[in-house]
């Protein structure tokens, strides 16, 4: 591994006027990229095609834009959409963080991070605050993202209506007419049968009051973080060949009813490591006798909190 690409690299985080945009377009080879491949793997024509789709997506928040997704050297369903979006926006001065289930050290996050260190040679980090681009699967970091950051979601199924209507020819029509009755009925049926909305993740949202959107399979707990987020949110679905986006400070509302307001779901416990009582928790089974404990899913946030507590105790 190149010394410039080790994790926890001390480089400063990007600022709003960081040269990311121009750097990305010129795509000069950063040191550390492997021979025989273009910077960040994709050829420049493909990146341009993806950037056009991204611009369109930003212009129509929450609307799915078809794009000519390429076959990647990682399997479909394992983040190829997110990888293509990241590859298209990454410049040599960027610092990349990759998480899966909120953690930097899950195997697929490691694999994707290694992919970008190999093909782009960019700096990587585990610290949310130091990253200019965060690629994620299934979580939004606990720390509030800033204007100078971009979050890229890996999306398995961009169509929020797919369980209700599998035909894309039909869902396309429903989106065009903003006809989302099907989804409201589905949520109502949950309440009628179970007393609660049974969707716990991939909870549908209305973006900018117009398009129904899948937030990707993040827990419903994370949905409120999307609302008026200062960072640009990009979504890539490689297998389904769709891109969509939420520009900064856009309204994102989780579907609900007046008498059954949306409720973010989390385990009613505190983190066994950092003591946090308001973050999303993983349940860990510790023995076969009902022993379990709860720890933060966001490993970076948890580690920082633990360090802060230790510092305070020392003082």
């Amino acid at each position: 591994m190149n010394s410039a690409t080790t994790m926890d690299s001390p480089r400063a985080s990007g600022t709003i006027d960081s040269p990311r945009a121009s750097g990305a377009i010129d795509s000069p080879r950063a040191s550390g990229a492997i021979d025989g491949y273009n910077f960040a793997y994709l050829d420049e024509a493909t990146k341009r095609m993806i950037r056009r789709a991204l611009l369109k997506a930003v212009a129509i928040p929450g609307h799915q834009i078809p794009f000519g997704a390429r076959e990647m050297p990682l399997p479909y369903g394992w983040g190829t959409g997110g990888i293509q979006v990241t590859a298209s926006i990454l410049g040599p001065t960027d610092t990349l963080k990759v998480i899966d289930q909120g953690a930097d050290d899950t195997t697929n996050a490691i694999s994707i991070r290694r992919f970008f260190t190999r093909v782009a040679g960019v700096a990587t980090t585990e610290h949310t605050a130091d990253a200019t681009v965060v690629q994620t699967r299934h979580r939004i970091p606990e720390r509030t993202l800033r204007e100078d950051q971009i979050i890229v979601y890996q999306v398995p199924q961009p169509e929020p209506l797919f369980r209700l209507e599998p035909r894309r020819t039909e869902t396309k029509r429903l989106h065009a007419l903003a006809d989302y009755g099907l989804m409201h009925v589905r949520l109502y049926e949950d309440i009628a049968r179970l007393g609660h909305i049974a969707k716990a993740y991939d909870y549908p949202v209305m973006v900018n009051g117009r398009y129904l959107m899948s937030p990707s399979p993040i827990p419903a707990f994370d949905n409120p973080k999307m609302h008026r987020m200062p960072a640009l949110q990009l979504f890539g679905a490689g297998r389904e060949k769709r891109i969509y986006a939420i520009p900064p400070y856009t309204d994102v509302r989780s579907l609900d009813f007046e008498d059954h307001p949306f409720r973010p779901i989390r385990a009613p416990h505190v983190c066994a490591l950092c003591g946090s009582g308001d973050t999303y928790l993983d349940e860990v089974i510790t023995d076969d006798a009902g022993g379990r404990l709860f720890v933060c899913s966001d490993t970076d946030f948890c580690a920082e909190r633990q360090a802060d507590t230790a510092k305070e105790a020392a003082e």
Binding site: P75, W78, Q101, T107, I265, R266, A267, S297
Partner: peptide, 29 residues
């Protein structure tokens, strides 16, 4: 089959965040 095998096999990737959400929801219900 490249698309299919990728998506079928992605189910072995960690899903514990979603599963946890599902667990809590089921417990509440």
């Amino acid at each position: 089959n490249i698309e299919a095998t990728g998506f079928v096999e992605h189910l072995k990737l960690p899903h514990y965040v979603d599963f946890q959400s599902e667990l809590e929801n089921l417990r509440t219900i």
